[in-house]
């Protein structure tokens, strides 16, 4: 009986310790943080003389929604990105590697603006880095 109780206790300890791993979405600070990162990102890319021409035809509110949904979905949040895939969304824009780099740099600065810690920034970048070939035309 004592042994059964002991084993039961161990099992309970085990299950109590298995806290569900926090998603990157939660670590970032959820929807509010992603909204903030996206606002800061748009403030930068839409006014960066090196890449602003890429967004001449873009509606800010529409882009905001798409970026938020995409970050939210890819970091494990509850959203569903319903825009075009990355190849379709950028086809015909002939985006260069150097322009992609400038976008990435603005994205990093936007995360800094939003006070996202360095180690979380890198985890976010790791998710989006493989999209380079889909976004650029080279």
């Amino acid at each position: 009986m004592k042994i059964t109780a002991f084993i039961l206790g161990l099992l309970l300890m085990g299950s109590c310790q298995t806290v569900k791993a926090e998603t990157l979405y939660e670590q970032l600070g959820g929807q509010a943080a992603i909204e903030l990162i996206t606002e800061k990102l748009l403030d930068r890319i839409l006014h960066n003389p090196k890449i602003e021409f890429l967004f001449e035809e873009t509606d800010r509110e529409d882009l905001h929604l798409k970026i938020v949904d995409q970050i939210c979905q890819e970091t494990g949040g509850p959203c569903v990105y319903e825009g075009l895939d990355m190849v379709e969304a950028h086809s015909g824009m002939e985006i260069k590697y150097s322009e992609f780099d400038i976008f990435v740099e603005d994205f990093i600065l936007a995360m800094e603006d939003a006070e996202i810690p360095f180690r979380l920034q890198n985890k976010v970048l790791a998710i989006f880095a493989p999209m380079r070939e889909d976004v650029t035309y080279e």
Binding site: P117, N122, A126
Partner: peptide, 9 residues
């Protein structure tokens, strides 16, 4: 390695 190990590069 972006974000590896431990979130560092």
């Amino acid at each position: 390695f972006l974000g590896k190990p431990w979130g560092y590069n």
